[in-house]
Amino acid sequence: MARVVFDNIRKEYEDEKRGNFTAVAGSSFTIEDKEFVVFVGPSGCGKTTSLRMIAGLEKQTSGDIMIGDRIVNHLHPKDRDIAMVFQDYALYPHMTIRENLSFGLKNLKRPTAEIEQKVGAASAILGLDDMLERKPRELSGGQRQRVAVGRAIVRDPQVFLFDEPLSNLDAKLRIQMRVELSELHKRLGATIVYVTHDQVEAMTLGERIVVMNKGVIQQIAPPTELYNNPSNMFVAGFIGSPAMNFIDAVIEGGKAVVGGGRSFDLPAHVVQGLRAYEGKPVVLGIRPEHIFGEDFALHVPHDHKLAAAVQVIENLGSENLVYFRVGERTVTAKVHPETSATIGQLKTFVLDLSKAHFFDPASEERILF
């Protein structure tokens, strides 16, 4: 296996209507040997373009890409020693599973004994032994995706590239395949670069996550770091389900004043960190699980209370999502399922502001203190 290096990579497209369009704007990062890295972001953010540039399916406008010790800028995909797994499986329908798995190796004119050994090993790892003589149409979506992964494994590449491979599967199969891919990475000790738009998938699979938006890398960090210390409002709002709440506030005399004139005392270190924002607006960010119905806020100080009319309640069984408004913003609270709340009710909520973040409304960057 090998590391992958992006050195100031830029990708521009020419568009007759919009002129030049920048898909990736000066990205630099290193994916270490045997690391599982996930690219995540909304459609059009540049994540798939980045993956395709690693594969050699797209040519960067400027910058260098390294795989292992080689700069691969001018190498064809077949010469980069990578294997790619696509969203649509891309299996040959007229071939058996055994033939699909061995096809690439036969094209490379590998010895028959080597092909049989590698196909047998991949089949055993992925649980395909009893399916080898079937055709793709006889398999489920999850089984077909396993075959696509197996076809990559037999090539024994330096880097595995996955382009939204679970998008066509139902929710239950996606969870199962996430577990299988995570176990596969541990077993193979492979370098894996994985693209998805699903932040839950990214959080559960990635050792590190590259969050992108509009061609720009917003943050690169392990899942817990992204969740607990987002660098800006985009990352804070994209990572986490439900998303982080944003509440407009003004800092006045060591307090955060929010919609309706409700003010919250702030810890001394927060007051110190927000000195430059005295009398100015900020955005208070707080995750839904840090907002409690007053009747079940058992382990949180009741210093920061907020009364608001309940708009919507989503009963999820193990928890309820309660929606209400603070100023112009809709806020979500993830509360205990036995929390008493009815639509239209004026409900008192307790905010755990020890877990809150503050953002500059102009730059949308997190205020560090």
Rank of each mutant, 00 (worst) to 15 (best):
356 A>L: 03
227 Y>T: 07
316 L>H: 14
216 V>L: 00
221 A>Q: 05
9 I>V: 15
204 T>H: 06
106 K>Y: 06
62 S>R: 08
114 E>G: 09
241 S>I: 07
120 G>V: 10
56 G>Y: 13
221 A>E: 00
326 V>M: 02
340 S>Q: 15
37 V>D: 12
271 V>H: 07
331 V>G: 02
4 V>P: 09
62 S>V: 03
91 L>F: 01
62 S>I: 08
193 V>C: 05
20 N>F: 11
176 Q>I: 06
118 K>I: 07
277 Y>I: 11
119 V>D: 11
248 D>R: 09
188 L>Y: 01
167 S>R: 08
245 N>V: 09
306 L>H: 06
261 G>T: 10
169 L>N: 10
199 Q>P: 13
308 A>C: 06
190 A>N: 00
119 V>T: 12
35 E>S: 10
142 G>K: 09
9 I>C: 01
33 D>F: 02
86 F>W: 07
134 R>S: 09
193 V>M: 09
335 V>Q: 05
336 H>S: 11
78 K>V: 13
360 D>A: 07
16 E>G: 13
269 H>A: 13
7 D>H: 07
47 K>E: 02
60 Q>P: 11
347 K>A: 11
303 D>A: 11
5 V>G: 01
347 K>W: 04
32 E>I: 09
324 F>V: 14
233 M>N: 04
107 N>V: 15
242 P>K: 12
361 P>I: 13
78 K>N: 13
96 T>I: 01
300 V>K: 00
203 M>E: 10
309 A>N: 15
337 P>F: 10
346 L>N: 14
29 F>C: 01
1 M>T: 13
23 A>R: 05
355 K>D: 02
204 T>D: 03
109 K>P: 08
262 R>K: 15
234 F>G: 04
50 S>L: 11
181 L>W: 03
348 T>K: 08
353 L>T: 04
173 L>K: 03
27 S>N: 10
287 R>F: 04
155 R>C: 02
184 L>A: 05
358 F>I: 08
299 H>N: 13
153 I>S: 01
351 L>F: 13
256 A>W: 00
147 V>T: 10
76 H>L: 12
275 R>Y: 00
24 V>E: 04
36 F>D: 11
15 D>S: 10
161 L>V: 05
194 Y>K: 04
319 E>C: 02
331 V>P: 00
354 S>W: 05
1 M>K: 08
140 S>K: 06
39 F>L: 14
316 L>P: 00
253 G>E: 13
248 D>Y: 04
171 A>Y: 06
343 I>W: 01
184 L>H: 05
255 K>T: 15
219 Q>C: 09
229 N>Y: 11
